[in-house]
Design a protein around this nucleic acid. Structure first.
Length: 322
DNA sequence: AAACTCCTCAACCGCGACGCT
DNA sequence: CAGCGTCGCGGTTGAGGAGTT
């Protein structure tokens, strides 16, 4: 059986709308309202199907549509709502006045999704990806870079530059990632290659004990920039460790959820980070306390634990935390 | 300048939900 | 309750513009 595509009947026009068609549709709806979309094309003298008219109106011609680039605030709202609602574009659009579900969907697919992937965050779960093997080339490049720095060091540079120290801090982070990856490696070959890489890293660390300094110690000796970098890396290491041991914080989150709904978004994020409390790595869509229903009660910006994407894509917050 | 690739976004398609009879 | 019509949603496509070689 199956339903015939609506535009196939009567040879109705498809494809891009002309200014004349737009004008007809706008005029008709402004005078009469859209009424039945099915009946509208004939009444408005348009050789289009009702569906096409509805889409053109809701996504393009509606007078309250906001066009142009998405602001940082809008971006953060989309991230937050997507972490709760998933691909419920129309529900997300309800919290962004003037934006259509189609526009948000396009923005997500062309910008935000890619951005999250680049940052190592799974765009569906909003959690750091645990498939470390896809990141191995970058890790190896980091090791190579470090070896280059080592070489320079041995060649007579007795003090490390700021950049060297930052690289060293990155190295410490890399090492933690590799240790974590080893423990979840899916097969013996992968474990072996990771162990070998990790052994190399340990060698490098032994040669350069500064790399393993604590941020507190670094601060006390005046290396505040490096201390910040190390702290940043330790934050990253923390979530990787969490992923490995798969801590399920969902029940705890459920208890605290209603309180969190009342805390304003930004201060909430800062508070959580200052307490060294991080979002869970398990699936939030299932564990999350503030469902779509609660979202409407609490408002778009103050409902939930921040997701990883919210934290990591909030440039201001990350600057502060570093 | 031409050819090619990549990216964006308007529009389409198919399906499920819902309301009416 | 079943059948039908309509609407709205989410996934996907492809035209055309932008950028690169």
């Amino acid at each position: 059986m199956g339903r015939p595509p609506c535009c196939d009947e009567k040879g109705l026009k498809k494809g891009p709308w002309t200014p004349e068609e737009d004008h007809k549709l706008m005029n008709y709806i402004q005078k009469h309202g859209h009424g039945s979309w099915r009946a509208l094309p004939e009444l408005a003298s348009l050789n289009r199907c009702g569906k096409s008219c509805r889409l053109r109106w809701t996504n393009y011609l509606r007078p309250d549509i906001k066009r142009g680039k998405f602001s940082k605030d809008e971006e953060q709202t989309i991230l937050q709502l997507h972490s709760i609602l998933g691909n419920k574009w129309s529900a997300i659009a309800k919290n962004l006045p003037g934006r259509t579900d189609n526009e948000i969907k396009n923005f997500w697919n062309t910008h935000l999704r890619k951005k999250l992937i680049q940052m190592g965050i799974d765009p569906m779960t909003h959690r750091p990806r645990t498939d470390f093997f896809t990141a191995l080339p970058q890790l190896i490049a980091l090791v190579n870079l470090h070896q280059l720095i080592e070489q320079q060091h041995r060649d007579g540079h007795t003090t490390m530059s700021q950049n060297d120290e930052v690289q060293a801090a990155n190295h410490q982070y890399t090492q933690t990632m590799l240790q974590s990856a080893s423990s979840i490696a899916p097969n013996p070959t992968a474990i072996s290659s990771l162990n070998s890489l990790n052994a190399d890293l340990e060698q490098i660390s032994l040669l350069n004990p500064q790399h393993m300094r604590s941020p507190t110690l670094l601060e006390s000796t005046g290396d505040e920039d490096l201390a910040r970098q190390v702290r940043h890396n330790q934050l990253s290491s923390t979530f990787i460790d969490q992923s490995v041991i798969n801590i399920n914080l969902s029940s705890d989150n459920n208890v605290r959820s209603s309180e969190r709904c009342h805390i304003e978004g930004e201060s909430r994020k800062r508070m959580l980070l200052s307490q060294n409390s991080l979002p869970p790595l398990t699936d939030m869509s299932a564990s999350n306390h503030c469902s779509a229903v609660n979202t409407s009660k609490c408002g778009a910006n103050s409902t939930l634990l921040p997701s990883w994407s919210e934290i990591l894509l909030d440039e201001e917050l990350m600057k502060e935390f570093e």
